[in-house]
């Protein structure tokens, strides 16, 4: 098995891939990026928390026109993972309004995004639970 690297640093690989958030220890606000301080309460202490891998589609669009080099169509969505919102593509699903619906139950899935020097970059999306 080749070496792997996660596409983003908030994706944790292994037997049970999942996302992690930076949670403010004062107010509980969650963020996925590197933080200077909390945007909600201005505190500066954070802890890593696991984000549930199942959720539902709260908003989506099917992108047919994108910047050069980006394969279309694809589904961009906001997933409500039991109270933590996540931005992701819907994958392993037809990119049509018939196949993707608001409120649809989805779960985290990973895929090989590319290979460089024998190392696979692993991306993530959410797929329908069916």
């Amino acid at each position: 098995m080749p070496d792997q690297i996660p596409f983003v640093d908030y994706l944790v690989l292994g037997d049970q891939p999942h996302l992690v958030a930076n949670e403010c220890t004062t107010c509980g606000a969650r963020f996925f990026d590197r933080r200077n301080a909390c945007a909600s309460c201005f505190a500066t202490e954070f802890k890593k928390v696991d984000v549930p891998t199942e959720g539902e589609v709260r908003a989506f669009t099917i992108v047919s026109m994108a910047a050069p080099g980006i394969p279309v169509p694809f589904v961009s969505a906001t997933i409500d993972c039991q109270g933590t919102s996540v931005r992701a593509n819907i994958i392993n699903c037809d990119p049509t309004p018939e196949a993707v619906t608001l409120g649809m139950k989805v779960r985290l899935a990973t895929y090989v995004l590319g290979d460089k020097g024998g190392v696979d970059a692993i991306g993530f999306g959410f797929e329908p639970v069916s």
Binding site: V8, V63, A121
Partner: peptide, 24 residues
């Protein structure tokens, strides 16, 4: 800030305005 090893637009949702406002 996300420690991304490749561009995220198109891989983690969309950055385009028509796509963002469609979701809204």
């Amino acid at each position: 800030r996300f420690g991304a090893v490749a561009p995220v637009d198109g891989r983690i949702g969309t950055e385009t305005m028509p796509g963002v406002f469609a979701q809204i």
